[in-house]
Simulated scan of single mutants.
Amino acid sequence: MPAPRKYPPELRERAIRLVLDARASEAELSLNAACRRIAPMVAIPVDTLRGWCQRAEVDAGKRPGLTTDADQQIRALQREVSELRRANEILLAASSFFARELDPRLPW
């Protein structure tokens, strides 16, 4: 079970929108500077807000990287592969156990 979120999604969306608006109004404003300006207003740590904004840019296709949806899919597939490998190990062990019971002369 994932850990509970510390900040509500509405606050996250509002903070990201404020940073994007600040950067749009001032073209020379960097992401870091915009986050340092907006973070105290919404009572969020600067690094947290910067991470949210970077993730939003990746999801929007403005920054290279793995989107949130793709990352979730990969994690789900990795869990499934791990589960299937465990099941295969169990089946292999069971099949060799039953093969030995049927013919004790077999080397395994």
Rank of each mutant, 00 (worst) to 15 (best):
A33N: 08
D59F: 05
T68E: 08
D21C: 07
P40E: 07
R75L: 14
F97A: 12
P64T: 06
D59T: 02
D69W: 06
A43Q: 08
C53A: 05
P107E: 09
R63H: 14
Q72E: 13
E28P: 04
F97H: 14
Q54I: 12
P45E: 15
V81T: 14
A94N: 13
R105D: 10
V81E: 02
G61Q: 01
L18K: 08
G51M: 08
Q73F: 09
A43R: 14
L106K: 11
L49M: 04
R50K: 09
V81P: 04
R23S: 03
S82T: 14
R36I: 03
L20P: 00
I74D: 06
L84I: 12
P104F: 01
E26T: 10
E80H: 05
V46S: 06
L66F: 02
A15K: 02
P45I: 05
E13M: 10
E57P: 09
R75V: 12
I38Y: 01
A33L: 07
R100Y: 09
S96W: 01
G61R: 03
Q73L: 12
G51R: 08
S96A: 05
A43K: 13
I74T: 06
P104K: 09
I44F: 01
V42M: 06
L102S: 07
V42E: 11
R50C: 06
L20H: 02
L84A: 05
T67C: 00
D69C: 12
L49V: 11
E28V: 10
A99W: 01
L49Y: 02
G65I: 06
W52R: 00
F97R: 14
K62T: 05
L106E: 00
R36L: 03
M41S: 15
I90F: 11
L106V: 05
D71T: 07
L91V: 13
P64S: 14
E101N: 07
P40L: 10
D71Q: 14
A43T: 08
A87K: 12
D71H: 12
V58W: 07
I44P: 00
R86E: 14
T67L: 01
S25G: 02
R100E: 03
A94Y: 04
L18D: 03
I90R: 14
V42H: 08
D69K: 13
L77P: 01
D59E: 10
R17W: 13
G65W: 08
N32M: 09
V58Q: 03
Q73K: 12
A15C: 03
K62W: 05
C53S: 04
N88W: 02
A94K: 09
E26P: 00
G61E: 01
A70Q: 14
C35S: 05
L77Q: 15
E26I: 04
N88P: 00
E89A: 10
A22Q: 03
Q78G: 08
A43G: 02
E13S: 10
R100P: 00
G51F: 02
A15E: 07
I44W: 07
F97G: 11
L31E: 08
K62Y: 04
Q54K: 14
Q73W: 13
D103P: 02
E13A: 15
S96F: 10
S25A: 14
E80F: 04
R14A: 13
A87E: 10
E101W: 05
L77S: 11
